[in-house]
Design a protein around this nucleic acid. Structure first.
Length: 443
RNA sequence: GUGGUUGUAGCUCAGCUGGUUAGAGCGCCUGAUUGUGGUUCAGGAGGUCGCCGGUUCGAAACCGGUCUUCCACCCCA
């Protein structure tokens, strides 16, 4: 049996874990300064909790788990006969892996509504799964770091979330552009152009503006059957650089603009470290967004978005709880990792690792080394003991490869003198000190 | 899901139009050096050429399938 790993998944080596922890810890500490509380949910959910929330495309990307037991006995015979996969699924699969953290959170809120107080501010850092075709920065298993507030329609939270994005990427050292829009503005643009009922089609087309250009979008719009007059009106709207210029003949559109203005008002004279800009072409696919939407792109690395989010007014309604508006954003840990790796932004010191290793020449000094290690650890110094009196070169090489900064070599001299040579592996210098002095030096 | 692309030693890659025992650099192991790593020198180990099948006297090379990688579309973190 040849060892293999599933496509779109990865193992993490210790060094990678340290770097990932650095990202998670940075994000977590910002979340906490805004009063967000941690939760976790199961990796599996009832399939009907997940389906229908992410649009048609999203449903296709859900990982489904085959029922246990004699699942064929209970399978839909007709669907099986006709080889109709999508009709067969409900009868052979009742569970799926979560596709994001937002929908399970909505389910969580409804189930625990009596245990939490609203507005409920939570954060969650866990893996999610998508049966997408992998590419660079696109995996089938990846971690999301989500912050959401549910139970308030206040646009104060939109303002908070923008600040959180700005602060996190500032402290990670990644320069980003934060694009902001509002679904109501998109609906308004469509209504203004006289195509209110087809605003989603329009949105999908204009979302591609920076990729295929104005001509490409014009083509796509005419292919979808929009008139030249509508297309012209759409372009007039999306060419607006600022909110002030945008003048829509649409009530819902004006509401969207008013919402964006209010977020602006909440922010007052706060200045962002990163670029935050209104972009009427920003669409975002996730089906459940209803108002504010946001997306984050790294300025210096060509990779997809490294964060995204928005407001969802009705997500808990499908679990039987109305009037429970929520808003939230997500950080894509894997892509942030890839960006930081490419830009060499990870700090070089890792104080989580072993600080000192004790080497020995024979059985007796190995025993002594272990007694010494017990003392060092009692003083909270991360200590290892090389497990055998192997050749000194081999022991030193291990210390070197592991990047352990200090070494003590123990032999009969050290045991009788009670003084040990503390060797600094960077400089190569050795100081002969008592145990007390060594503990002082390393703490 | 559609179209394309990649896969040779632990890593990065050579290997001409199919022709004996498949190479390099780095890394690894051993020694020079029986109380001190990173340098140097000498020697050594390591590959069912992703996997399965086909064509051929003969396949790492050609064909088909499959898995994987990356790219475009779709969508997204």
């Amino acid at each position: 049996m040849k060892p293999q790993i599933l496509k779109g998944t990865r193992d993490f080596l210790p060094e990678q874990i340290f770097k990932r922890e650095y990202i998670f810890n940075t994000i977590r500490s910002v979340f906490k300064t805004y009063g967000f509380l941690p939760i976790e949910t199961p990796v599996m959910e009832h399939l009907n909790t997940l389906t229908g929330k992410y649009g048609e495309e999203g449903d296709k990307l859900l990982f489904k788990l085959l029922n246990n037991g004699d699942f064929l006995a209970k399978a839909d015979a007709k669907a099986l006969e006709e080889k109709n996969s999508s009709a067969l699924i409900p009868s052979i699969s009742k569970r799926g892996l979560r596709y994001d953290l937002t929908v399970p959170f909505a389910r969580f809120v409804v189930m625990h509504q009596n245990d939490i107080s609203f507005p409920f501010k939570r954060f969650q850092i866990q893996p999610v799964w998508r049966a997408d075709r992998p590419q660079k920065g696109r995996y089938q298993e990846f971690y999301q770091c989500d912050v959401d507030v549910v139970g308030s329609t206040s646009l104060l939270y939109e303002a908070e979330l923008l600040q959180i994005y700005d602060e996190v990427f500032k402290s990670l050292g990644i320069k980003v552009t934060i694009r902001v829009n509002n679904r109501k503005v998109l609906q308004g643009i469509a209504q203004d152009a006289g195509i209110a009922d087809r605003w989603m089609d329009m949105t999908i087309a204009i979302d591609k503006l920076d990729k295929i250009g104005k001509d490409g979008v014009t083509d796509e719009l005419s292919k979808k059957g929009f008139t030249a007059q509508s297309t012209e009106k759409i372009f007039k709207s999306i060419n607006c650089e600022s909110l002030e210029e945008l003048n829509l003949d649409s009530e819902i559109g004006r509401l969207g603009i008013a919402e964006l203005n209010e977020i602006h008002a909440f922010l007052g004279d706060h200045t962002f470290y990163n670029k935050v800009k209104f972009d009427p072409t920003l669409a975002r696919g996730l089906g459940y967004y209803t108002g504010f939407i946001v997306e984050v792109l790294a300025d210096d690395v060509k990779i997809g978005s490294i964060g995204g989010g928005g407001r969802y007014d009705d997500l808990t309604a499908s679990f039987g709880m109305k009037d429970m508006s929520g808003v939230g954003i997500s950080f894509g840990a894997e892509r942030i990792y890839d960006v930081m790796e490419e830009l060499d932004l990870f700090p070089t010191d890792n104080n989580a690792a072993t600080k000192i290793i004790l080497l020995s020449f024979d059985k007796e000094s190995l025993m002594h080394a272990n007694q010494l290690a017990i003392n060092l650890r009692a003083s909270n110094i991360a200590t290892e003991v090389y497990p055998s009196a192997a050749k000194m070169k081999k022991q030193m090489k291990y210390a070197n490869d592991r990047k352990i900064p200090f070494v003590i070599v123990i032999g009969s001299n050290e045991i009788s003198d009670k003084k040990y040579g503390l060797k600094n592996m960077d400089t190569g210098e050795t100081d002969h000190l008592t145990l007390d002095k060594i503990i002082q030096r390393l703490t």
